[in-house]
């Protein structure tokens, strides 16, 4: 039985060697074989690279999760590194108190949704006008829109703050809405540019057909261009939502600095960064940890990390839901005109 199998194997190997010898003797087939082998090697290399880069990207996230679930009693335990010895949500409890989590989350949601809506309206309209409804001097305005990308926000922050204070707009979320609705929100210039490039890629014939049927530009925009530009809309919506969520500079300067009651997650996170010890002592939550924690820097690092996870968590959940749409949107967008 075994002998038979061995014989079979031997013959099959012999067969294969003969087959490849035959291929090797013919230059064209040899070339094809070599190409196939090369392709396989490149493929393996590609996978190694992709997996490695995925690790690099996911590393901070894994790190944060590993730290966040670590029990406070395990903080100096050298045997616990990636997987916590016992899962505990004590860190989360403490970080939530330090961040004033639910209040901040509500504020952040209000701000992000509002700003996203306003940015979408203003930038898509302006982008459409720059792409198709040209008038004399509109290219100058477009150059100005590109110029707003190049000038960093810090440069104009101080005078802007002063004039907004004179208008009595500082300290209210409506300021950010106003700026987003006027196309001067966070990186609006880039969104205008993206929309313009996108609309330029949509065939003119579609619009012309609509015009012949008696539509005015507003109808063409809302019924033809916007539905066709779904990819760009999703991209811009996600980016503006995320950037508003993670924004510290704008929000602090125009809202939170003079209205401490209205804090977003990111501003809370930063203020926790600066005064964690004080904040936690004030809240009297050190008792939850059950140790004298003020002496060990690892404890504050742990709480900071956990609060970071809490800040990013809603975004990650959101991303998880929209990522398919997002990826498809980018694929189909063809942003270059």
């Amino acid at each position: 039985m075994i002998k038979n199998a061995w014989k079979q194997l031997k013959s099959s190997i012999h067969c294969a060697i003969k087959h490849y010898q035959l291929i090797w003797s013919q230059p064209l087939r040899k070339k094809a074989l070599l190409y196939r082998i090369l392709g396989k090697i490149v493929n393996v290399f590609k996978y190694v690279l992709v997996v490695g880069l995925c690790f690099v990207i996911l590393y901070p996230l894994m790190l944060q999760l590993a730290i966040a679930f670590r029990a406070p009693t395990d903080v100096n335990n050298p045997t616990v590194l990636w997987i916590p010895g016992e899962f505990s949500i004590k860190n989360f409890q403490v970080a939530m108190i330090a961040l004033r989590y639910w209040d901040a989350l509500r504020n952040t949601l209000i701000l992000s949704f509002g700003v996203t809506m306003f940015q979408l309206i203003s930038t898509s309209l302006a982008g459409y006008a720059f792409a198709r409804l040209k008038f004399r001097g509109s290219s100058i305005f477009f150059a100005a829109a590109l110029f707003t990308i190049v000038v960093p926000q810090t440069v104009i922050a101080l005078p802007l703050l002063r004039s907004l204070t004179q208008m009595q707009l500082v300290g209210k979320p409506i300021t950010l809405f106003l700026m987003a609705g006027m196309g001067m929100g966070i990186k609006s210039g880039i969104f205008i540019y993206l929309f313009r490039q996108f609309y330029r890629g949509i065939p003119v014939e579609l619009e012309e057909a609509a015009y012949i049927d008696g539509a005015n530009p507003l109808q063409v925009f809302s019924k033809i261009m916007l539905p066709n530009a779904r990819g760009a809309v999703i991209t811009v919506a996600l980016l503006s939502f995320v950037w508003q969520w993670n924004d510290f500079y704008f929000t602090t300067l125009f809202v939170t600095r003079s209205n401490l009651g209205f804090a977003t997650l990111t501003t809370q996170q930063v203020s926790v960064l600066f005064g964690l010890q004080q904040a936690l002592t004030d809240a009297g939550v050190w008792g939850l940890m059950g140790q004298d924690v003020t002496k060990n820097p690892l404890f504050s690092s742990m709480i900071l990390n956990t609060s970071g996870v809490l800040v990013m968590l809603p975004l990650l959940v959101l991303y998880f839901f929209v990522q398919k749409l997002f990826v498809q949107g980018i694929e189909r967008s063809g942003i270059v005109g």
């Binding site: 006008a129 005078p159 700026m179 006027m182 001067m184 925009f221």
Partner: peptide, 28 residues
């Protein structure tokens, strides 16, 4: 007509550009 619509579409951006961008830049 198209040009008028184009101007209308750009108007919010233009106001924002003047109020929130160029005047602070010149002030700086």
């Amino acid at each position: 007509q198209k040009m008028v619509f184009g101007m209308l579409f750009i108007l919010p951006w233009l106001i924002g550009f003047i109020v929130f961008f160029s005047s602070p830049l010149i002030t700086t």
